[in-house]
Design a protein around this nucleic acid. Structure first.
Lengths: 145, 145
DNA sequence: ATCATTTCCTTAACATGTTAAGTATCGTGG
DNA sequence: CCACGATACTTAACATGTTAAGGAAATGAT
């Protein structure tokens, strides 16, 4: 007779939103100075880590939906942060690569970004931090079990 | 000299996004049948739990930004899910209340919603589930420590 | 080769996230 | 009572989330 929903104060979706907000607040603050958005930062991070990528792979690795990435990539191209080229073998594919200007943003902010993450680890404790990442991984659809 | 960012595959913000996506997917599926969005569902949940609320409190409890709630409330009013009245004491305040039609949505979906949450608990194990909520709470700014 | 299907991406439309500016009301010191 | 700042919301503007439809290139069966 489970006729009552759990209190919203103990709701997992809401807890995830609030935790994300807590984590992103200092990062967003940093990015405001840089003039890029959180999503653009994610794209730069992935491109910096993996090099040349097609749009599908990039969308997956940066956890962006395809239509969002289309717009974001166009904006980043206009800003000179990435280049878009067509795959000559499979002309449906688009290949995206980070530019020197894009890489410079990463380089300039790496130290600051690392500090923010360290602060969070300290706040939670390293063990808890790792536990949290593991538990979140269990909820991830794309890494199915 | 921490000159390298953590791999994006072990990034907390991205893990939070993906976990949220995993949790919300079945809920969103349920809500599609109902014809309301995830945020509207949250508003209904909070109103059902707490009764009459002013906009500020409602925004906070449903984890929505004020401008978003303004739009969402207007849309929900037009759908007949809530009522908006002005506070006669403090005429700046707006009081929002769930309607019978809104409550019916909650009632109709409570069982299904509970089942979804139970599935997640089972997937993680109850202990892990509680641990996860606790850890997420530590990241929440609004519940500062 | 040709047509249907699939794959990769773009566009469109609407809702929300986010920041900033604007409006109306309240409370307070002078 | 009045000017002032604070509070509670609204609007605006732009970026993203989300779903659906569309377009172009590859693939496979005939």
């Amino acid at each position: 007779m489970s006729s009552t929903l759990p209190s919203t104060s103990r709701s997992l979706p809401i807890a995830l939103i609030r935790a994300r907000e807590g984590v992103m607040a200092p990062i967003r603050e940093m990015l405001t100075e840089t003039g890029i958005t959180e999503q653009q930062w994610r794209v730069l991070r992935v491109l910096s880590e993996h090099g040349l990528l097609d749009t599908t792979t990039l969308a997956e690795r940066s956890s962006l939906l395809f239509p969002s990435l289309t717009r974001i990539a166009a904006s980043m191209r206009d800003k000179g942060l990435i280049t878009q080229t067509r795959d000559e073998i499979d002309r449906r594919r688009q290949l995206i690569e980070i530019t020197a200007a894009g890489q410079k943003i990463i380089d300039d902010r790496t130290s600051q970004s690392t500090q923010i993450v360290d602060d969070i680890k300290t706040k939670l404790g390293t063990d808890n931090y790792e536990t949290l990442l593991d538990l979140l991984g269990l909820l991830d659809i794309s890494s199915n079990d």
